[in-house]
Design a protein around this nucleic acid. Structure first.
Lengths: 244, 244
DNA sequence: CATAATGATTGATCTGGATCAAGGAAAGAT
DNA sequence: ATCTTTCCTTGATCCAGATCAATCATTATG
């Protein structure tokens, strides 16, 4: 998978400043970790980390999409995060996680051993600062998602999801025009992200299609025909957006 | 309001190590900020911060309960956080917030000016580290709440809320026995926290009462009669808990 | 190329929780 | 003590989205 330009822009602010993701980072702090860097690939559906497992690595997503999810004893599951290229996996100062990390498409991660990475963080304040920013970004995203899960209608949920995808995958040099986009997960996985059932997701996607807001190229690929109408359908107000 | 012992314990790990909350902190790092310390009180219902407002202060809750909430244009609101005594308000490195902070009971905050506080954070790595821990704790809590909002039934939501209150307000020297507890907010506010309506909250509270899991002293005060049954009603598994 | 297997759609029905509506209880205010 | 106001409860009804049930499309497999 080609890494979109948008991710390179995003990565320029990244504490990892990862060569695989960011073209500008040849001279960055992580040079000292170069020897410990390793790429790992996961096939779609593969578990990347299980809940409770010890975090041996921190990583950044190079390509593909991974999800964070929680599962109840009776099988109900709720995704609590989406990891797109340039996103960071790791919890400074923590050994464990309380959710599963799963590859939803084929995923390539670039991993560093946790120990030397944390040593780096301790020694370089601005990296620590950047990690704090990332944590606060995640917290903001989680809170936006709480509003979605608690109060939005099915249509608003689906529209919000599509708008988020459009925002994160938009090519910045494209002048507002939307291009073909890919749903990075199945209807079932989307429903677990949105707190819905897969049938409802399917119906709402078709409703948006019938309203000429989106068009499907095939089941996984679609185009946004009317970005303004899509935004109206999210229920969000005009200024404040997700993951600002 | 007397500050429960449990909060003093909690506060011993707090970066703020606030005298008002923590008896052990006479000699802590915040001595240098002593001159800028100020107590502020808010009556129940008062706004503490509006969305978009500039954060001039960071603060810790000394007494009372405050909430973080998001509101949609049409009035639907979702609480995205609950602030109990010893909790911290502030976003290191950030000027703004994207939610409202409101006092739900009378609240006393202990405030520091943001600038000197951030200077302190920059200069003392372990304070920065502790703030990162707090941010990750909040993130974990937010993700647990996402599971609640997206997948739990009304009964599970209400039971989870009560169990969380019991955990956070339990007096540690009490040997498992539950004492009288207080609902820190109205049915309407609880419904906004749980993604329900106030009628549903009322009905579920009464259902738990009828099941002899809780008993009401009056509308705002209750007792947990059967903590195990309350836990069963949350839908959570036995080990992993909220806000660990 | 037939044949599973997986994922998506579409329809019919059901139901948990929302909505609408009417009192009741407690706490201030006059 | 009476009147408001605010908060809570309880009942009746409704409906968005869940559930149940086929069927279809697409991709993998022998």
């Amino acid at each position: 998978m080609k890494i979109p330009d948008s991710n390179i822009v995003r990565c320029s602010e990244c504490p990892i400043r990862h060569r695989a993701v960011c073209a500008r980072c040849d001279d960055d702090e992580l040079g000292i970790l170069e020897g410990m860097k390793s790429y790992r690939t996961f096939a779609a559906g593969d578990p990347i980390l299980w809940r409770g497992e010890e975090l041996v690595y921190v990583a950044s997503v190079v390509s593909g999409v991974a999800t964070l999810s929680k599962t109840m004893e009776d099988g109900r599951t709720q995704m609590v995060g989406l990891l797109l290229p340039s996103d960071f996996i790791g919890r400074p100062g923590r050994q464990e996680i309380d959710f599963d990390v799963t590859a939803t498409t084929d995923v390539t991660l670039c991993c560093f051993s946790r120990r030397p990475f944390e040593k780096l963080v301790d020694e370089t304040p601005h990296v620590a600062q950047r990690l704090m920013e990332l944590a606060l970004d995640e917290l903001d995203a989680a809170r936006d998602w709480m509003l979605l899960l608690g109060r939005k209608t099915a249509r608003e949920k689906v529209a919000t999801f599509l708008e988020m995808l459009a925002r994160r995958s938009r090519n910045p040099d494209a002048d507002g025009t939307q291009h073909e986009m890919t749903l990075p997960m199945t209807r079932d996985q989307i429903s677990n992200y949105l707190g819905l059932t897969l049938e409802t997701v399917s119906r709402q996607l078709n409703a948006l299609k019938n309203d000429k807001i989106i068009a499907f190229i095939d089941r996984r690929n679609f185009e946004v025909l009317n970005l303004a109408a899509l935004h109206d359908a999210t229920g969000d107000d005009n200024d404040g957006g997700m993951i600002s």
